[in-house]
Design a protein around this nucleic acid. Sequence first.
DNA 1: ATTGGCACTCAGCTGTCGGGAGTGCCAGTC
DNA 2: GACTGGCACTCCCGACAGCTGAGTGCCAAT
Lengths: 341, 341
Amino acid sequence: MVEDRKLAVLRAIVEDYVATEEPVGSKALVERHGLGVSPATVRNDMAALEEEGFITQPHTSAGRVPTDKGYRLFVDRLTTVKPMSAAEKRAIATLLDGAVDLDDVVQRSVRLLSQLTRQVAVMQYPSLSGSTVRHVELVSLAPNRLLVVLILSSGRVEQRLVDLDAEIGEDDLASLRSRVSRAAIGERIADAITALQALTVAPAGQRTRVAVLPVVTTLVEAMSDHRSDERVVVGGTANLARFGDSFDTAVRPLLEAIEEHVVLLKLLGEAGSGGAITVRIGHEGPYQELSATSVVATGYGPGEQALATLGIVGPTRMDYPGTMAAVRAVARYVSRILDEA
Amino acid sequence: MVEDRKLAVLRAIVEDYVATEEPVGSKALVERHGLGVSPATVRNDMAALEEEGFITQPHTSAGRVPTDKGYRLFVDRLTTVKPMSAAEKRAIATLLDGAVDLDDVVQRSVRLLSQLTRQVAVMQYPSLSGSTVRHVELVSLAPNRLLVVLILSSGRVEQRLVDLDAEIGEDDLASLRSRVSRAAIGERIADAITALQALTVAPAGQRTRVAVLPVVTTLVEAMSDHRSDERVVVGGTANLARFGDSFDTAVRPLLEAIEEHVVLLKLLGEAGSGGAITVRIGHEGPYQELSATSVVATGYGPGEQALATLGIVGPTRMDYPGTMAAVRAVARYVSRILDEA
DNA sequence: ATTGGCACTCAGCTGTCGGGAGTGCCAGTC
DNA sequence: GACTGGCACTCCCGACAGCTGAGTGCCAAT
């Protein structure tokens, strides 16, 4: 069938171009792939593909190069995400299992992802909003000074110091502690915030009153603190060195984006939940300056819910199937680890 | 005096080369600086300077370029660190004063430093080893599970979970808490470790025994944890884009170094204490691959002691006086903030 | 010690030219 | 109607040559 072959040609062009970095011509194409037709035939197909906007030639008498639209079609219809090899899976598992805390998990994941894909890896910290409160602790450091510790299901631990206007005794502290715990533990962040705020208006023992407001305020602040939501870790910038050729179009804007974590977050976009992998190719992304780069990302988090996003950023010319596989694999393992913790 | 003029010529060459990025010739030199002699004379001096190894020419019939040795002489003898302007000082102060916690201080400092110098800024977290223990807290999360919190004078807070083999009551916990506090609080890390370890051999109440060992082990681990010592924050990588020309000699190796925090730490080197600023030029550094880059660094920390190091990494061709001034200024303000906290 | 003059060197730009890869089109074949 | 071989055409790219200008080293004169 003609249509089928045209797609095969597109696939071949993408694969060859990704591998060689050079515009690929009709002759090389029939040689390297067993297309079973002559170069002339392929040329006709190529002309049609170009007509439809899937490929272009940088200049007359050069080979063809996929356009963003071409990559898009390739990713959507011509790609089966190839599973990772058993050895790779084992490597991922052992590396990530060695992590000691959340920070470490994130660090290792980013490093791993960047090594697997040989691209710049980006990972958002598990966001607060989707997770639940696992534990709240109030510790008296001094008669009028408390340490508030908040442990979330995402593994995140936040601690804040609270200065009180008056002193508070151990007994009152214990009572406050239990009331706060009862209100918040097990709840999702949003619900916990409402429940906690209710405490401030409910009638309270005279003695604990002095502590309720500041403690609740601090907790709510810690819970809704968007600074942690925005925390992003980047790794594998050294991989930028690999495409030193397209320095101005690819490397420079990416370097600038990496500095601005807000930009990175926007780039990662909304987490595709349920194992879906988002691929944004070139101009499809939100930033014009980054029209030479693609993003491959997916959501992750404990229990199938996508608490946050991780992925990679790289040139549009990249090995999409392999990259998608790596991103998916890492996201899965990280999610599993967060599950266990 | 002839020697004096030779030095003036060297200074002029360095300044011009830093400004223009181009080899500087005798004619341009006498024009741009009021040397009051003819180009021919300058040429003689240049020949002498080249003889002595302070400058070199990339090829015959090109202007001169300073060598590492030339920069060295320039930094050692021809530079007075120019103080920052009042406006700059104010900007630094206000920006850093807005920081809410240690993480934030570090983040802001790095960003600030990279903006001031337009180089890649590197900052080591205040190291544990020099600081003292401010507070230790043991929190019971479950009958056989503790949260250990360690607060250091550097502002750093470490928390660890400890699982016990048996349950421990509130009373026993309180007693353990006070014993641990007595041993550690106010001590420098090294001393605290010894004191804590003494607790494990001292006779202890039967009941607390089950908790002493794991708690002390965890604390000691947290204190001597080299991972935190090695924590390094990098900012301003976007500035690498500015020297896109020397991509292979400067940008690529630096990108690789930035990935390896251990390498960065070694690069920063020992903190020059007491306000001294360390300048490592090109090959003087520990890594051959980074022979095209210089490091300007200094120690910082509360109360004049150099707990950690901060500085910048950039091409050997950089504005040393300005950079040194910025590094010194930021280090001072950060130290002051740590003092207050 | 300094200077003006002069011959020399060489990077870098410009223009020219041939080779080669790749294309588009057309006429012929199955 | 789909495929193919042939052919003329386009245009990038590297090599080569010539020129220019900045910069140098050296020397004789002051």
